[in-house]
Amino acid sequence: MLLDHLKSELVQFHVRTDNWQNAVRIGGDLLVQQGICTKEYVEACIQASLKLGPYMVLSPGIALAHSRPEDGALKVGMSIITLDPPISFGNKANDPVRLLITFCGIDHDSHIGMLQELATFLMDDQNQQFLLAVTTVEELTGYLQKSKG
């Protein structure tokens, strides 16, 4: 379940920041604080997008930031933050971003189950809307328990 990956320290709602790099730092820092990745990993996420382009905005309003396991990944995990106001990541088709997921995998496939649960959840528009509106972890947890997400 998605719920298993989202303890309260890994989510933050209605985060206000001024640019996409800082948004990734905020999402990444939640992982650093939980010992899931190093600070270097977070900076590598930013460098990846600078080098490869803003392809990490994979759906309207949703960005998935990550880097390679060898860049400082310590455990499998992800953080979710909602951005309010939304932030432009430089992706023509899908900007601005309102939901930023930062994830970390330790090899090529140990994170697949987690992403699968995330993708299944996000493919439902109603779930997306809920996630963008929610303000407390308790609300989200309750919703996920009810929807078995």
Binding site: A48, H66, S67, R68, L118, A119
Partner: peptide, 13 residues
């Protein structure tokens, strides 16, 4: 970019 994240989501879709 890395064949781990976005492409994995696209594969699921």
């Amino acid at each position: 970019g890395f064949g781990l994240g976005s492409s994995m989501i696209l594969k699921m879709t």
